[in-house]
Amino acid sequence: MASPRRGLAPLLLLLATLLVLAGCSRAEVFRKEAYVFGTRVDLSVYGDDPAAADAAMAAVLQEFDRLHRAYHAWQPSELTALNEAFARGETATVSDELAAMLKDAQRIAATGDGLFDPALGALVALWGFHSDEFKPTRPDPRQLQALLAARPRMADLVIEDNRVSSRNPAVQIDLGGYAKGYALDRAAAILRAQGVTNALINIGGNVIALGKKGDQPWRIGIQHPREPAPLATLPLYDGEAVGTSGDYQRFFEMDGERYSHLLDPRTGEPAHGTQSLTILITPRAGAGTLSDAPSKPAYLAGEQWREYTRRFDIEHVLRVAADGRVEVTRALRARLQFPAPLEVTVVD
């Protein structure tokens, strides 16, 4: 007579297998959207645990909200308090984080010959960009010339541990060209700490990738500066970041002319030589930050853009000139796919 235990063994094995399969869910992309830093934020996490993905993305959005409130350029924040101290000629004590950000921004500004200079917050305000809604008006010429004569620069800052002062009372810090990239690095650190290894973080076109999407790399598009469609697409690999400076993101038009928020500190006017400039940062420390601030001096440099990207060891660059010409470095051209035939000039 057969043993009852032997007869039950296959059934128990089948039941255990079904329970294991039931506990396994298929991996998918989980997403969250928000509006922070004056732009749209998109988070994507690839995995099989919706609760873990949701918690990790919620932690990232909480951090973004903290950064937005702490370093807002015109609403009350630690940054506006610092600017008020500069205007009074006083020294301020700031957080460790802000002191480190200011030192890094100071270094980037020096590398880019001051074309990217967060000390020009007063110039940004003069052009009306310290507002959620832009009013199409030019600044008072006398105020503009007075500010140019005062020449506020990041080099005016004196940073000693947490004590920050300015040799120039005209300095008003605006981290708008730095904070999104810094936030990308913070998001990547938070996701990794929560065990997320595959994600894509997009803050208004500044993007960083972690891992991949299943068995394929993440894929992103580079916005066409004059059409509501991608100019090109490319794969983005683990630890890479992409950022674009363009005259189509924050701008107003008046008398047939476009005025963007990308202001040239040499003239005090919006730059007109470039429609957009995109850089890809290969995996390195601070890749997110480097995808943001270093695109500004290259954008403002016009035809000399390649000189400035080299200074930051950036080999993957695409530029759309004011006349629509498309220039791309050889390293990035090998990665791009264009949805429509396009004449491009390859630059070494």
Rank of each mutant, 00 (worst) to 15 (best):
M1H: 08
S3A: 04
G7K: 15
A9P: 00
L13P: 02
L15P: 08
A16G: 03
L21D: 02
A22W: 14
S25V: 09
S25T: 13
K32N: 01
A34P: 00
F37E: 07
F37A: 10
G38L: 13
V41F: 04
V41Y: 04
S44K: 10
D49I: 04
A59R: 11
F64S: 10
R69Q: 15
Y71I: 13
T80P: 08
A81W: 03
L82Y: 13
N83A: 07
E84F: 00
E90V: 02
L102A: 06
K103F: 00
R107Y: 13
D113K: 01
G114N: 08
D117G: 12
G121N: 05
W127L: 01
S166T: 07
P169C: 05
A170L: 06
D174G: 09
G176E: 06
Y178F: 15
R186N: 05
A193W: 02
I203E: 06
G205P: 07
A209T: 01
A209K: 07
I222K: 11
Q223D: 12
H224R: 08
R226A: 15
R226N: 14
P230V: 10
P235C: 07
A241V: 05
A241T: 13
G243R: 07
G243V: 04
T244Q: 05
Q249P: 00
F251Y: 15
E257R: 12
L262D: 01
E269D: 06
A271Q: 11
L277R: 02
G286C: 05
G286Q: 14
P297F: 09
A298M: 06
A298V: 12
T309G: 10
I314W: 14
L318R: 00
G324H: 07
V326Q: 14
T329K: 10
T329L: 11
T329P: 04
T329H: 12
Q337S: 15
P339Y: 14
E343T: 14
V344M: 03
